Amino acid sequence: MTDIAGVILAGGQARRMGGGDKGRLILGGRALLDRVIDRLGPQVGRMALSANGDPGRFAEYGLPVLPDTVAGFPGPLAGVLAGLDWAAELGLSHVLTAAADTPFFPADLGPRLRAGAARAGTPMALAATLEDGRLVRHPTFGYWPVSLRHDLRVALEDGLRKVVLWTDRHGAASIVFTGDPFFNINTPEDYMQAERIVRTEAE
């Protein structure tokens, strides 16, 4: 999937974890961001971080750091837009996004979202799971077409903030994954659960 750019959404302000970059949290001896990079890297041709503030704090990773281009911290869609603009400069057709605080997402995320979008005849797809029979979408894990970046910019400038309102407008497919691979670390309790998962995987 060398025609796809991978963008790690690392722009959250982590208020429930005391602030700072959640991607720098150490989980099982490794930073969350290291774990996410290892999972996303093999699925894409190029990779970047979506983050605001001083890009130098990520210098050790050697990846482009893409700040929001829409003011006011409008949320993950701003990171998606920054990634789409970057991918367009590279001549790539799509962006695959992953959240920096979600270390266990599927290693086949990209191929499955891409295939699902093709089957549905739609330009984009979002990851989803079933919880008690209810479809739950995980919009920070998506397959996004560069061709819609201008539409997204206009939507954000008009005040749109909810991801699925925009993706529904364009008929995004929902691709269901089993289990809870999109478990993310929002609170200290989540962090403790993630540590337990890592220990179990190591056994």
Rank of each mutant, 00 (worst) to 15 (best):
A117T: 00
G121A: 14
Y143F: 15
P181L: 13
P111E: 00
G91M: 04
G159K: 06
P181D: 05
V146I: 11
L33Q: 03
G116P: 03
G18K: 03
L96Y: 09
R196W: 12
G159V: 01
R46V: 13
L152R: 01
Y191N: 07
V80C: 12
T97Q: 06
D21T: 08
D21G: 03
P67L: 03
A51Y: 07
P145E: 09
G133N: 06
G6S: 11
D158N: 15
A128I: 13
P111M: 00
L160E: 11
L49E: 00
L160H: 12
P55I: 00
V164W: 00
P64K: 01
I37W: 02
M1G: 11
T129W: 09
E157P: 01
Q193F: 14
P123D: 13
R161Y: 11
P145Q: 11
M47N: 07
L40H: 06
L126Q: 07
A5G: 11
P139N: 03
A128R: 04
P55A: 04
L113P: 06
R161D: 06
F183E: 13
V36C: 09
L148F: 01
E60N: 10
L9S: 06
L165T: 15
P106E: 07
A115G: 06
G116M: 07
A88N: 04
A51V: 12
F58T: 01
L148W: 10
Y61Q: 04
L156D: 06
A59G: 02
F141L: 13
D54G: 04
F177R: 09
E201M: 14
L33S: 00
G62M: 02
P139C: 08
S50C: 09
W166H: 04
R119G: 10
Q43H: 09
I37C: 06
L66T: 00
A155K: 12
F141T: 09
D108I: 03
T140P: 03
P42F: 00
R149K: 10
M1H: 15
V36I: 08
L32R: 07
H150C: 08
R35P: 11
H150G: 06
D38K: 08
R24F: 14
A98K: 08
L66Q: 05
H170Y: 14
W144F: 11
E131V: 14
P74G: 09
D101G: 05
G12C: 02
M192L: 13
K22Y: 10
D54C: 01
D132S: 12
D180W: 00
V95Q: 04
L109N: 04
G28C: 12
T122A: 15
V146R: 04
F73C: 05
R30S: 10
G171F: 08
R39M: 02
L63C: 09
S174W: 13
L96D: 02
L152I: 08
T167F: 05
L66S: 06
V70T: 00
L84S: 08
V36R: 00
A71T: 10
A107S: 13
G12M: 01
E195H: 14
R153L: 11
L130K: 11
A98T: 13
A127S: 10
A71I: 03
A88C: 09
L32M: 05
A127T: 08
A172I: 00
R169G: 11
E131C: 11
R112M: 00
S50Y: 03
